[in-house]
Design a protein around this nucleic acid. Structure first.
Lengths: 334, 334
DNA sequence: ATGAAAGCGCTAACAT
DNA sequence: ATGTTAGCGCTTTCAT
């Protein structure tokens, strides 16, 4: 910038004014400066600008993994919405581990950003509680989190209840839950959604068939494929196949679909199937997979609003929002 | 930092030395400073550190869209590898448009990063040629790009040739190409892969059946689903159904799979199907979709090596690398 | 309409 | 082992 100033015969301040389109610069000075800028190929140094401004114009989204379609869809929505508000999105990966997430939210790292949207999969309550809050943070995800943070989550119980009721209404009577968890403290998506599965059974006057919960070590499609294949083999031996499956996520639903195919079971004729997340791709997986629509658009809008108002200095009490949920019915539950 | 220095009764330089773990600080001074740091909750300001250092420790990956599984998988691999090298990855979305990509690679934006890996979908040769090169940039993608850039691409022609040959070897004789392009300048993935499809036919002594190319306005699964459904309906009227489909990408393959299902055609009994990219999810889409494995691991390693050596100041002539390709054979081509 | 001075938080280089 | 000086590139404030 000082080079430009020297060559153009003006002060750096005038260059700054021209480059930033501020008024009070004569047309001819502006022109001359612009010429020199082009000649010298000058470009602002954002790092310096930010040091001075004390803000970065960039928001971070920290997700457990880049390679899960759910987070890809989420990131796309955030990028679009933030772009409209003149902010930039950088996506970081926390690695789905406590360590990764803790390091991803270390203030050292995050001071690069004006605010952070953090998907808290893998962080425990105490870890979140330990986070300093002098940086605007909005939490996403199905964990229970400390009161003092803004938090937007899905309607886990209600969505699962809707999905299970959807199956029961269509006449299914042995509704398995892939990725379900035996009763326990309600601390994550799997637990909450299992509660919804139980609630739907009770609403229908049925005892929740706990033997049809199929727990999994993780919620990858490959894991679901393997675990459900084994569960189906055992159920078949006992002559006790399910007639429907509620999968805790669409990734799991995909694995279940594959396992059912391998077992020679037709969807929906032999077994109905519904997932959770409504990933764009599940409508293209034969025969078209039903899913719980978690209203990601709503989640992204609310999270963005909360973050922006915190960045603007809002000291409102922290909010804890739950998105609506609805059923995207497709052929797999027809 | 100066607050810490004052309270601890030392100079800011000593604080800097302690905080950065540099030697030549007495144990007791170090201890005292660390205590004050904890008391005051001091954290380094990375922006200032970077302004001073002139480098950011962060590399950007610019992808067309966050919500395409291929880029999610790619980003995950880059993040892991760069993490091992002590660098941080931020992913940016260009929006798959010329404008988006140009703004994403504007120097103003990119000066935040030590280097950039840019996926050039949507950029024309001239646009790329206009990029300044005082920042290390490695190009990814199937476009033809100016010589002066490092570039890593897939084996498009060879991969498509392998896929098509794989189908022909298994006895298919009417191999359609979903997302194929009638002969023309070889400027993108679709064109190059169509060339491979032609080459395999010629290798087998067959005339490429140009009427079995099914062009598409974009390569979304939904588009493929619709376009292929229409093409199948027309083909059926003429009694000229294909007995195999090579899909230009796995996203397209997914759409083709759905269209085949809707048309009552079985995979692989009535129609064999193979895609390109080997996304993790296609092995779980019934009956398990074959695909061309583009060796993403190789691509990511090479691109990272190139970028890091440029960042380190290498002035080697620019490299243009082509990854190996192989067939991941699954039930859809059995 | 333009400019000079000061300083954002940090560290390399050079004292002591 | 510790401190002083200078400056990274920019903008805010206060002249002129």
């Amino acid at each position: 910038m000082s080079d430009v100033a020297r060559v153009a015969g003006v002060s750096v301040m005038t260059v700054s004014n021209v480059v930033n389109g501020r008024p009070r610069v004569s047309a001819e000075t502006r022109l001359r400066v612009l010429e020199v800028v082009a000649d010298l190929g000058y470009e602002v140094n954002l790092t310096a600008k930010r040091l001075r401004a004390g803000r970065t114009g960039t928001v971070a989204l920290v997700v457990p993994r880049f390679d899960h379609p759910y987070f890809g869809e989420l990131a796309g929505r955030f990028a679009t919405l933030l772009g409209e508000k003149g902010l930039h999105l950088a996506v970081e990966q926390s690695g789905a581990s406590r360590e990764g997430e803790l390091s991803a939210v270390s203030h050292a790292r995050l001071h690069m950003y004006d605010g952070v949207i953090l998907s808290v999969v893998g962080l425990h309550y105490d870890d979140v509680d330990r986070l300093r809050t002098d940086l605007p943070i909005v939490l996403l995800g199905e964990q229970v989190v400390p009161e003092r943070f803004d938090h937007v989550m899905m309607a886990n119980v209600e969505g699962a209840r809707l999905a299970t009721a959807h199956l029961l209404e269509r006449g299914s009577r042995r509704v398995a839950m892939a990725g379900g968890t035996p009763s326990g403290p309600s601390t994550g998506a799997s637990e909450l959604r299992s509660e919804g599965w139980r609630a739907a059974h009770r609403d229908a006057g049925l005892e929740p068939p706990e033997d049809l919960l199929v727990p999994m070590p993780d919620l990858e499609a490959a894991t679901a494929h393997r675990v459900v294949a084994e569960a189906l083999a055992r159920a078949r031996e006992r002559g006790a196949l399910p007639d429907a499956v509620f999968a805790v996520t669409d990734q799991v639903s995909l694995g279940v679909r594959a396992a059912l195919h391998d077992a020679g079971l037709r969807v929906p004729q032999d077994v109905r199937l519904i997932g959770f997340d409504d990933l764009g791709l599940v409508q293209h997986v034969p025969p078209g997979l039903s899913s719980v629509d978690p209203h990601n658009g709503w989640i992204v809008e609310r999270a963005t609003d909360l973050l922006l108002s915190r960045i603007a200095g809002s000291t409102e009490p922290p909010q804890h929002l739950v998105a609506p949920a609805s059923i995207a019915a497709r052929a797999s539950t027809a």
